[in-house]
Structures are given as structure tokens and as C-alpha cells.
């Protein structure tokens, strides 16, 4: 009786030890599975995922140094706080005369160079449009529409993208969490994401961030057209407007009812320009209330 009792006790103890060795063996196996997973991943992962951007040219480095010095001296340290408010007494509008656009793309070049964009990123994209298969194609420069009812601003969970009193919609890439909801919400596909390190990231490393220019760009954040808010603060016309050789762009202040042509420098009455030429807005039926007006591609004049 006693012996049998003892033997069961011993068996229990042994099974307990057995349990411990089993557990230890299992944890060893878990470790092996972990190591194995890394090895297999390394074996599978043969692609270099980041695109090759080439090396940075020397003249760019010199230009960079000059730019950094200029920015460091001139950039208001409070700029990113001030940039949350609009410029007082302004409501900016862009008028695009489609009948003059010859697809020169100087605006796109100026924009991409200013905003540190990769070749597949656009703040401004000139589209070849065709309303119907029987009608002739025309070119349509598409900016962010700086909507007065902006779908992108509504959905941003952290107020990284915001609407100013002067009508401009900006993105603070030091606030952006990279959820890309704004990209999904924008009906104009006007937004771009930094899927990789931005172009010339090394060059712009020490440049202080200016939200009105959205430079330097940051990996994992969204970027888009700023209406060149940095130029507007200095009383200049946007980069794209100045770069156009064909007089496509008029830019100005809705409150003053005047717009200036970026090529000719001619200032005209906004309401008359829009009315005389039968201006329209892009996807106006969505109710986003854009700040960009288009003059039709073909008119009798």
C-alpha cells in the first residue's frame, strides 16, 4: 500500500519534470522557428526595394548650400505657427485658361524642382483630357483645387492638413501620421505620398522645414500643391504661374476681384474674366467648391 502510494508520488514528480523538459524543448523549438523565419525571409528577399535615384550632381550641392544659407537667414522661425493662419484680407484664386495651354510643362518642371518631387510625384499634373470620344483633346493643368469644402481636411485625424482663411489648404508634414486617408478622400487625385525617402534627401537634410513650401519632404508623409504659399507671403506669384510661357495662368485675390497673368503681367477683373469666358470648375457637381477656375479650351473670340 505504502509502496504503491510512493510510486504514484514519484510518478507525479517525474511527470512534473517531464513537463518542464517538454516546455524547455518547446521554447527551443520556438526559438528555432524564429531564427528559421529570418533566414527564410533573407533568402526570399532578393529585391532592393528602394528605387535607385542616382548620385547628386555637384552643382546641386552648391545650390543647396546657397539655399540653406538663404533660408536660415531669412526664414521666420515662427513660420510654421504663422502658416496656420491665412494672409489677412486675401482669398486666393487661380484661373487656368485652357485655350492657351500648349502642354509646354514648364509649370510642372518649376513645381517639381521647387517642391523636391520625384519624377512620379506631382503637385501639378498636366492631363490630356477628352470629354467625349468625338471631341478634340485638350490639356488641363491640374493643381490641388484648394476647395472651400475640402474632403481631405475633413478626414484628417490629426489636423495635419488644414484650411486657412485665405483659402489655401496646406499639409504639415511634421504632424502627418501617413494614414493616407486624405489621398483616398481627394476626388482630384491631387495628393502624393512619400513612399520612399524623398528626392535628394541628403541635400535637404539641414534645410529648416517650411510648411508653406512643404520642403524638405519627409518619408511617410503626404504632400501636395501649396499654391506656393511661401511666394504669396512675399508678394510674389506662384512658381508655376511665373514659369508658364503661354499665358495660361491668372492668379489673384477674390476679395479684390483682380487676377494677374503670370506671363504677360496683365491684371484683369476676375468676375469679368470668368463671366466673359464661361469659366467652369473641375467636378463642380461634387460640391467641393474649388478655388481654381478653368476657362474652356475652345471659345469664339
Amino acid at each position: 500500500m505504502l509502496i504503491s502510494h510512493m510510486s504514484t508520488e514519484i510518478c507525479k514528480l517525474m511527470s512534473l519534470n517531464q513537463d518542464k523538459t517538454n516546455r524547455r524543448a518547446f521554447f527551443v523549438k520556438l526559438g528555432l522557428a524564429g531564427i528559421g523565419s529570418v533566414l527564410v525571409s533573407k533568402w526570399m528577399d532578393k529585391t532592393s526595394w528602394a528605387p535607385n535615384m542616382g548620385s547628386t550632381a555637384k552643382h546641386l550641392i552648391i545650390a543647396r548650400d546657397a539655399y540653406i544659407n538663404r533660408i536660415k537667414n531669412s526664414l521666420d522661425p515662427e513660420i510654421n505657427v504663422k502658416a496656420r493662419q491665412g494672409l489677412p484680407g486675401k482669398k486666393f484664386v487661380l484661373v487656368v485658361d485652357l485655350s492657351r495651354c500648349r502642354n509646354a510643362r514648364k509649370c510642372m518642371e518649376a513645381c517639381a524642382a521647387t517642391h523636391q518631387l520625384r519624377p512620379d510625384q506631382f503637385h501639378l499634373n498636366v492631363l490630356e483630357m477628352r470629354d467625349d470620344e468625338h471631341t478634340a483633346p485638350y490639356y488641363l493643368p491640374k493643381h490641388c483645387q484648394h476647395c472651400d469644402n475640402p474632403p481631405c481636411v475633413k478626414v484628417c485625424p490629426v489636423e495635419a492638413t488644414y484650411k486657412r482663411t485665405d483659402g489655401i489648404v496646406l499639409i504639415d508634414n511634421e504632424r502627418c501620421i501617413g494614414c493616407r486617408y486624405c489621398i483616398a478622400a481627394c476626388p482630384y487625385s491631387a495628393r502624393s505620398f512619400n513612399w520612399f525617402d524623398p528626392k535628394d534627401a541628403e541635400l535637404y537634410k539641414d534645410v529648416p522645414y517650411n510648411v508653406e513650401r512643404n520642403v524638405p519632404q519627409k518619408k511617410g508623409t503626404v504632400t501636395k500643391c501649396t499654391f506656393s504659399a511661401d511666394c504669396l507671403r512675399n508678394g510674389e506669384l506662384p512658381y508655376c504661374v511665373r514659369a508658364c510661357p503661354n499665358g495660361v495662368y491668372y492668379f489673384g485675390n477674390l476679395y479684390e476681384d483682380s487676377v494677374t497673368n503670370g506671363t504677360t503681367g496683365e491684371t484683369v477683373k476676375l468676375s469679368k474674366l470668368l463671366e466673359d469666358n464661361g469659366a467652369f470648375q473641375l467636378l463642380a457637381e461634387l460640391g467641393t467648391k474649388p478655388s481654381v477656375y478653368y476657362l474652356p479650351p475652345r471659345r469664339n473670340n
Binding site: 490629426v158 489636423e159 504632424r175 502627418c176 501617413g178 512619400n194 518619408k219 511617410g220
Partner: peptide, 15 residues
Amino acid sequence: MGRPERLWHIFVYGR
């Protein structure tokens, strides 16, 4: 998320 290290922004700046 493009910027997972900024997750706390949702709790600080959440709208």
C-alpha cells in the same frame, strides 16, 4: 501608417 512613431499624434491632436 507611414509614420507609426507618430501614433501619439492621434491622442494629442485628434479631431
